[in-house]
């Protein structure tokens, strides 16, 4: 634009270049945390609650992160104390939920079957655990797809990655800036409860399935040993017979 003679093509190319530079700047600034929202709006109480949960459960969405030095250091210290606490929660919750689930399962089992010698130990089959997890994820998926207008696959993906503690952070409920602020906060809190409960259920299933797998492994080992012995006996018998035949021939 040195002289006032405009060349349409040249102008467009130049402007495109300038805009590209500007865009790079914007993305750079965005990556460093510019959000068009003031920090007061980002760090509301429910959001901060969600952030803390994402630290101690090791999900780590990463949609909001500490920007200051003190924040980073504090995050590390918080995680250092929070993670063992969470692990404790995971273990305890797993045991309690597993116990209650087993009790319910036993009750149902006793009701549905005839009362014969049911004094033997009842082990919850792992398919039941899988069904429970499946149902939980399905409810979550339907709930989030209703609220957030995600499609069903997206919300299922969100639930699985959250409960698996992967937490990509590409989809986070209540992170949309355009939505109203008040609704977001209730959503965040319900999300909080959903995830905390879900992790407990995962722990329960983990607990129950481990038991079953132990039993199964033991059974498999016994079967394998029996099989080995059988084949050995057969082999020996075969050899003996062959030997006898051999001796008979001569």
């Amino acid at each position: 634009m040195k002289n006032n003679i405009f060349d349409r093509l040249q102008f467009r190319l130049d402007v495109d270049k300038v805009l590209k530079l500007h865009q790079d700047d914007v993305t750079k600034i965005f990556k460093h945390g510019y959000d068009e929202r003031s920090m007061d709006k980002v760090w509301t109480f429910p959001a901060a609650l969600m952030f803390c949960l994402s630290i101690i459960t090791m999900v780590g969405y990463g949609n909001m992160v500490p920007k200051t030095r003190e924040g980073k250091i504090l995050t590390m210290v918080y995680a250092l104390f929070g993670i063992p606490l969470y692990v404790l929660y995971f273990k305890n919750m797993g045991q309690i939920l597993a116990g209650s689930f087993k009790w319910i399962y036993r009750r149902i089992y006793e009701c549905s079957t005839e009362k014969d010698d049911s004094r033997r130990k009842i082990i919850v089959p792992s398919t039941a655990c899988l069904w429970v997890i499946f149902a939980y994820i399905l409810t979550g998926a339907i709930m989030f797809s209703e609220w957030e207008q995600w499609d069903f696959l997206d919300s299922t993906y969100f639930c699985v990655t959250s409960l698996g503690k992967v937490g990509f952070g590409d989809l986070v409920p209540g992170a949309d800036v355009n939505a109203s602020n008040h609704g977001n906060q209730t959503k965040l809190i319900i999300n909080f409860i959903y995830i905390l409960l879900g992790l407990g259920i995962v722990a329960m299933c983990f607990n129950l399935m481990r038991e079953e797998i132990k039993v199964k492994l033991k059974e498999m080992n016994e079967d394998f040993n029996q099989c080995l012995e059988d084949t050995k006996a057969k082999f020996v018998n075969c050899c003996k017979r062959n030997k006898e035949e051999f001796e008979e021939e001569y």
Partner: peptide
């Protein structure tokens, strides 16, 4: 060090 800690504790913010 923040990155290392966040990664090794499997939090993984990704910032």
């Amino acid at each position: 060090s923040y990155f290392c800690f966040i990664s090794l504790s499997t939090i993984g913010f990704g910032d």
